[in-house]
Amino acid sequence: MSTVSENLQPVVEDEITIEVTINGSPRSGRAEPRLLLADFLRQQLGLTGTHLGCEHGVCGACTVLIDGEPVRSCLMFAIQARGADITTVEGLDDDGELHPVQQAFHAKHGLQCGFCTPGMVLTCKALLDHNPTPSEPEIRDFLSGNICRCTGYVGIVESVKEAAAAGRGVSPAAPASTTTER
């Protein structure tokens, strides 16, 4: 005989006001202490571009930038982000004009279903902000905390190279592809 968690009591705590800077603008919302930052962004602020793939810190889909550093918003409470400067995917484009990293993902087929994409482009932005000329092993190492189930990372790695090259004003060599027609 067994019962499930019969001794657990629900957590009921008061909401508090959280003030943050999101994508350059001040925003505030209410959050109970247990509210995850990801849920705060998505539900309280309506920024649903931040996705949740596992809620236990493995997949990286929920990655946002806090003071320029990639952070898993599913492993952080909203309350811990009080006063932080947060960049979400919604803050990357310039009034519809894609950020160079976004443009590179488009040009190199760096996305398929799009679910990992926000976390992936933010992570790539953080990489290139720190290291504008990453080698392929450096790219792969930096991206290894972001899971993509669709692309096999081939297009993504090419996208980062493309974005890095665009930052230097050059165009990288296209990957080889051969076709035999009948």
């Binding site: 649903t48 571009g49 979400t88 488009h106 996305l111 679910f115």
Partner: peptide, 10 residues
């Protein structure tokens, strides 16, 4: 692509 890249997928 663009809607996904901009976080505007639904």
């Amino acid at each position: 692509d663009n809607k996904y890249l901009m976080g505007r997928g639904r």
